[in-house]
Amino acid sequence: MPTKDVITSADLDELRRSALGTADPLGVAADLADAAQRGRLADPEDAGGALTLAAEIAEVRGRLDAALQYADRALAAYPSVADSRAGIARALRARILFRAGGREEEAMAELTALRHLLIEQPEAPAYVSAALDAGGFPAIAEEWLSEAVDTVLGRRATVAGAATEALPAEATVEVGPPEAPGVLFFLLQQRHRVRRNLNLPHDRQDDLADRLEAQLVRRAEQRQGAEPDLLFWPRAEFDRLLAEHAELAETYGPDWDAHRGRLERHLVQQANAGRSGLSVASASVDGLTGFARRHNGDLTDPEIRTRYARELASRPGTLISWPPERNDACWCGSGLKYKKCCLPRSRS
């Protein structure tokens, strides 16, 4: 299934969003690989990204042999292993090896080689832990992330002239500006997510993850000059929203766990202030896009999103009441009990 004679960077971005929904995703993957091989990319430096996308499509469609070939070619296309995109491709290759069966040792060797990037690249905690989780090794992901957090905090403590162990809970830790959170933020958030999935007890570094998240939210709100809207994005809608509008991670959180945590904490604050009858509006990307189009606006405009939230609030069936009972299903739709899901996210 040919795409275009020449594929631009913008075309690649669109294919990342839409390829799996086409009639022939594997045809798209093969065409991307052909474009990289035959010089049909407008920017030759997109070759690694095009091949990585081809590998992802083939993996999702269960064509693991083809996925592995595309991943190998993607790695060869990057001029340096230090390139963060090369790390993503290598983690993808490990994930494919896990799924292929019988190649767990090779997959672990790939990820072990990426382990040092956990304290160097903001993207690394997500793609390394995701690959380990896909291989059935979430406990190893927790171990690696915990050690990386200790390393980063230890370095900062040493610089500050304090003990080289983890900083105390009351210490002030810089998270970075809202538009560019630092490595520590992403390490703590991924560790927090992994530990929740493992049902591990909340510890001091989990507390620190919550505090840094709250700090980032406050800064973003101050920059926007307004309270956050109470739009709730179900998991699939959230993933699509950030895939199409990455800049909205500043408003809604870098991942779905952070998004739910922000809403839960805001709702708790509202309840503590004496408000009752609280709820969130379940949003969709198509709904917000259509609203923005009808009102000649841009969905990245906070005013458009606030007006969309108000419109949803007036429609039957779009509001989710809060809070549920502790033993009832969580409001976020995860299927877990509230006490095991979003209730603990109210900690700050």
Rank of each mutant, 00 (worst) to 15 (best):
G62Q: 14
G62F: 15
R63G: 08
L64G: 07
L64T: 15
L64A: 07
D65N: 11
A66F: 00
A66P: 00
Q69N: 06
Q69R: 10
Q69M: 05
Q69S: 11
Y70I: 12
A71C: 10
A71Y: 02
A71G: 10
R73K: 13
A74L: 04
A74E: 04
A74H: 02
L75Q: 15
L75K: 13
L75R: 15
A76K: 11
A77K: 03
A77E: 02
Y78R: 06
P79Y: 02
P79H: 10
P79I: 01
S80N: 12
S80H: 12
S80W: 06
V81C: 01
V81W: 05
A82R: 12
A82M: 07
D83S: 04
S84L: 02
S84G: 03
R85K: 09
A86I: 04
A86T: 05
G87F: 00
G87Y: 01
G87T: 08
I88Q: 14
A89W: 00
A91V: 08
A91M: 05
R93L: 08
A94S: 14
A94W: 01
R95G: 02
I96F: 07
I96E: 06
L97R: 13
L97D: 01
L97M: 12
R99V: 07
A100G: 04
G101L: 07
R103A: 08
E104D: 15
E105N: 09
E105P: 01
E106N: 06
E106R: 12
E106F: 04
A107H: 08
M108R: 10
M108A: 07
M108D: 13
